[in-house]
Amino acid sequence: MTDNDSRAVAGRLSVAVLGAGLIGIDLMTKIARSDHLDLRLVVGRDEATSGLRQARQFGVPVATGGVQSLVDREPFDVVFDATSASSHAEHVEKLAPSGTMLIDLTPSRNGQMIFPTVNRADICAHRDLSMVSCGGQAAVPILHAISQAHEIDYIEVVTTAATLSIGRGTRMNLDEYVDTTQEAVRCFSGVTDVKAILNISPSRPPATFRVAMSLLGRDLTIDSLHSIVLAAAAEVRSFARGFEVKACTVNDGEGFVAVEVTSSGDRVPRYAGNLDIINSAALLAAESYAADRLSIAGEVYS
């Protein structure tokens, strides 16, 4: 019996969250609801942060000291990395030897990109999963579906997030956000000419998380685009309930699709669908992995 097997004996995988910002704390709440994941630690920068305070109040053990505090403890089956893009490679290096599955919520572009409705089958074959970006999670399922049916020459993805939903990590990682989102769109649409843009809105009440996609493709028609987009959106709603199509138009070979995502609750307000969709996708990835590891009959979600 290997170490990994013994850890899974209790019927739940041991889990830690690295990073106690907006993403980390919402994840904590989502993990706590899982039947197959056992949240054992939340790691923050220092004791005084509001994230660690919330974790402690929530009854989860907390630690400071970054990735080293994970290495020093028992090996974890799953570690969610909610820190910063520039730190992720080091986290992989430190945690991979113990067989830990890393699920990366930073835009580091390090691991296997995962979009649950597109390539869920890839989850168990890798030990470093990239959730890409909130904009990527909202856009790629739609763009992947469109590019399967149409000849697309150019794709543009414009994300708008409310200022209150964008923490310091993301503010310092704007370039990585842009690069990684572009790379994911290229990879899953097969279109090379891709541009990603991020707007931050301070409007009151706060703007709902929104992703507007423009596509150039001579064979686009409104009937086809509309049905493809609605079908792909329905799939995404299986794990991100607040995913809605707000506009879908075609004019002179230019398709335009806007989606908005509201949060289903937990630690983030309704408008912050950006946090909700990437965390829900990350949770789904962890549960798929757990289902595989724990050999649960059938899927966690169907």
Partner: peptide
């Protein structure tokens, strides 16, 4: 930078429901 809102606003003013 939020030019993408223009389409939604115009559709809303026209009373068109293009969403799902």
């Amino acid at each position: 930078g939020q030019e993408d809102l223009i389409v939604d606003v115009a559709l809303a003013l026209r009373g068109a429901g293009t969403g799902d």
